[in-house]
Computed example of a mutant assay.
Amino acid sequence: MATTIANRLSNREATQRLFLSVKTIEFHLGNIFRKLGVRNRTELAARRAHSG
């Protein structure tokens, strides 16, 4: 899911691709942000790009 979001998809676009609800995406995205220590999608994308 983090890869889908890091690829600059909106929550709504991610729901369509992953067959999940918007609430589910928001919940898991918040958990991912906390776990990785990032505050927004830009930081998530940068972290993903840096890690390869």
Rank of each mutant, 00 (worst) to 15 (best):
M1P: 00
M1D: 03
M1R: 03
M1K: 03
T3I: 06
T3K: 08
T3E: 12
T3P: 00
T4G: 11
I5L: 15
A6E: 07
N7C: 06
N7M: 09
N7E: 11
L9A: 02
L9F: 04
S10Q: 06
N11A: 12
R12F: 08
R12I: 09
R12E: 14
E13K: 13
A14I: 01
T15A: 15
T15M: 15
Q16R: 13
Q16Y: 10
Q16A: 14
R17A: 08
R17T: 06
L18T: 05
L18Q: 12
F19N: 15
F19W: 10
L20M: 13
L20C: 07
L20D: 00
V22H: 15
K23Q: 13
I25F: 03
I25W: 00
I25C: 04
I25V: 15
F27L: 13
F27E: 10
F27V: 05
F27Q: 12
H28L: 14
L29W: 03
N31S: 07
N31G: 07
I32L: 08
I32F: 01
R34N: 10
K35R: 06
L36Q: 01
L36R: 00
L36H: 01
G37L: 10
G37F: 06
G37K: 03
V38W: 02
V38M: 04
R39S: 13
N40K: 10
N40I: 06
N40V: 07
N40P: 04
R41I: 07
T42E: 15
T42S: 14
E43R: 04
A45R: 10
A45L: 09
A46F: 00
A46Y: 00
A46T: 04
R47V: 07
R47F: 02
R48N: 00
A49D: 09
H50Y: 07
H50F: 06
S51D: 12
S51Y: 05
S51N: 09
G52F: 05
G52S: 11
